[in-house]
Design a protein around this nucleic acid. Structure first.
Lengths: 343, 343
DNA sequence: CAAGTTTTGAGGTGCGCACCTCAAAATTCG
DNA sequence: CGAATTTTGAGGTGCGCACCTCAAAACTTG
């Protein structure tokens, strides 16, 4: 039979009240007794029954995902995964909320974060672009006891917050390796498109991409990054112009999670000319394009995994436990037509 | 406040005893009352508190992984992940065991499975080669109430057991796509090596591989599968002979999870000649070879994920819950030097 | 309608722990 | 040394549910 607190008290030669004091780090316990108890814990292999703890504490956890409003398909997928997790966690006395706020103004984001009632919130997962204001606001939240997760976002990593997401330099490098390998030694140019190069993640991906192209595929040349600013007309224009100026373009790499606009522009001007195309994130659009062989590879980070990982981390931190690192690493996935799996 | 069984009883206009009968599917409840209760559950949004259930039931779950004895590095990794999970689940009243048995004789495996005490076991995850005896033994286990998972193995899928692992045809196809794309249009032969082609998973990978090579890369020719039978001497011999007979070999595809023996043989005879090399499973060996750029890509299924998935499934089945399919899909990972991540 | 059967209710116990109170014992300090 | 302070123990309550018993009520059936 598994030892209970009662067994532990007996083994340590102390009372249940003292065991309780040690286990829950209550004040007024002598070092001597603390030692006796911790020693007994080791000796008899006592492990707290989490079910009993949860029941006795009768606490409900409250976590919130702070996401952008302006939505590409990846964001929609993300929200769907959060909703899924919300349902699944309802049973476990865990409330999961989604807040969508405009990400254009850093002050706005900071203000929102500052306004969060830290007594009613156990953890927040924030997906927001890098800015000092946001960083400060997040730090203040952490100081007030709210567990924070930097979520899939191009922010500078904070010391006292967890990060969920991939290494974007490595993701870019992976894209570079794929582009270089798939073009089969043909020399030429690579067109690189982003929504904006203001985001840290885009910059890191570009750096990773270039590092591989330069080192391993010197016969390829990465063109300067084109920025669409999410504007369809603008995208059409600059992409068309770039392709015409560079008839020896052999590949396209889309840095941002929204690939529809730039790639539609490419296909409109390009016709059926063979281009190696690599994009980021699995969305209905990229899925379809992979199936149609109009995209060769997608570099992805699984949103479902990311959401669950963020929740597990916030939960662990709330319980003063260490999250299991090996489980929380988000993989850089390489999706081809062949290993796309549906359900 | 979250509704309890008491609230539910009140809302349904029945007693707590009746609520208990409905919730736990005890006999002697009229349809009328069952309906009243289920309706009330919907109406007030009642959700059982799993912590309270676990505490009241005070049940310990017992799951066992049945794995092969003869061990390549992937098996070692798998065992490490099971041990990790065992520690993590100790708190949750879940005992995880590992049994290693010789997989050479199907009767032996079947006998072992049949010998499992079905009263003391809630679920088994079996990694064993295909055979009618094993299939029968597994079915009988299931009939006796033990939840079964076909674990990373080349068995024919059973109706009343869950499967954890990748689609091996797709995995082979993915390997084919990588080989075809990475060889850059050079015509030539592909050497294919397996430990044995008796295993269903090897066959399926080969079929998937060929389907892509034939359809998309007709300038490449897949050679007949070489079988090492795990014998180093034999591997050296047949691989050396094959390479000499086929000087136009441009790629090597290792079907089995143990790639060390065949690839060492290849490198010994081949010297520094440029070959595209694709293997399966992430192991210390394949990791190192990826870093050294002696392997170009590894097709992998994450053993940690597989183990946790099997455990979640067995746990869900034991509780008569449906596992969350989207979370349990094992991905076919494509690992390159660039997206290897350590921790 | 009586005797049997099925269905429902009332009530209790215990799972393992957190959290609380009050008193007794041990220690510290002036 | 006595008084103030800290440490320890004893004991109780409740978290939400499963599981049990016994009796009462509601249906069947011949």
């Amino acid at each position: 039979m598994r030892p209970t607190t009662k067994d532990l008290a007996e083994a340590a030669g102390v009372s249940l009240a003292t065991v309780d004091r040690v286990l829950n780090e209550r004040p007024n316990v002598s070092n001597k007794v603390t030692l006796k108890v911790t020693e007994a814990i080791e000796r008899i292999g006592f492990v707290r029954n989490p079910a009993a703890v949860a029941l006795a504490r009768n606490k409900t956890y409250r976590f919130r995902f702070v996401l952008p409003t302006s939505g590409d398909q990846y964001l929609a997928e993300l929200i769907a995964r959060v909703s899924e997790a919300r349902e699944a966690l309802r049973a476990d006395a865990t409330e999961v909320e989604i807040a969508q706020i405009a990400m254009s103004d850093p002050h706005q984001i900071a203000k929102y974060l500052t306004g969060i009632d830290h007594d009613a919130m156990d953890g927040v997962a924030v997906m927001a672009p890098e800015s000092p204001q946001v960083r400060d606001a997040l730090l203040r939240l952490v100081e007030r006891g709210v567990k924070a997760v930097q979520f899939l976002s191009g922010q500078e990593r904070l010391e006292n917050a967890d990060y969920v997401g991939v290494d974007n330099f490595a993701a870019g490098a992976t894209a570079g390796k794929i582009v270089g390998s798939f073009t089969g030694g043909r020399p030429g140019k690579i067109m690189i498109v982003a929504e904006t190069m203001m985001a840290l993640d885009s910059i890191q991906r570009r750096l990773g991409f270039d590092s591989i192209i330069n080192a391993r595929f010197p016969h390829l040349e990465s063109l300067p990054s084109l920025e669409t600013y999410g504007d369809e007309k603008r995208a059409d224009l600059i992409i068309q112009r770039t392709l015409q100026h560079n008839p020896d373009t052999v590949a396209v790499y889309v840095l941002s999670s929204e690939a529809r606009v730039p790639l539609t522009a490419v296909w409109n001007t390009q016709g059926a000319r063979a281009l190696t195309v690599v994009a980021h994130e699995r969305t209905p659009f990229s899925e379809q394009a992979l199936m149609d062989e109009r995209i060769d590879a997608v570099i992805a980070q699984d949103p479902g995994h990311a959401v669950r990982s963020a929740l597990r981390i916030m939960r662990a931190r709330s319980d003063h436990r260490e999250p299991l690192a090996s489980q929380e690493r988000i993989r850089i996935e390489v999706l081809l037509k062949e290993n796309l799996q549906f359900e």
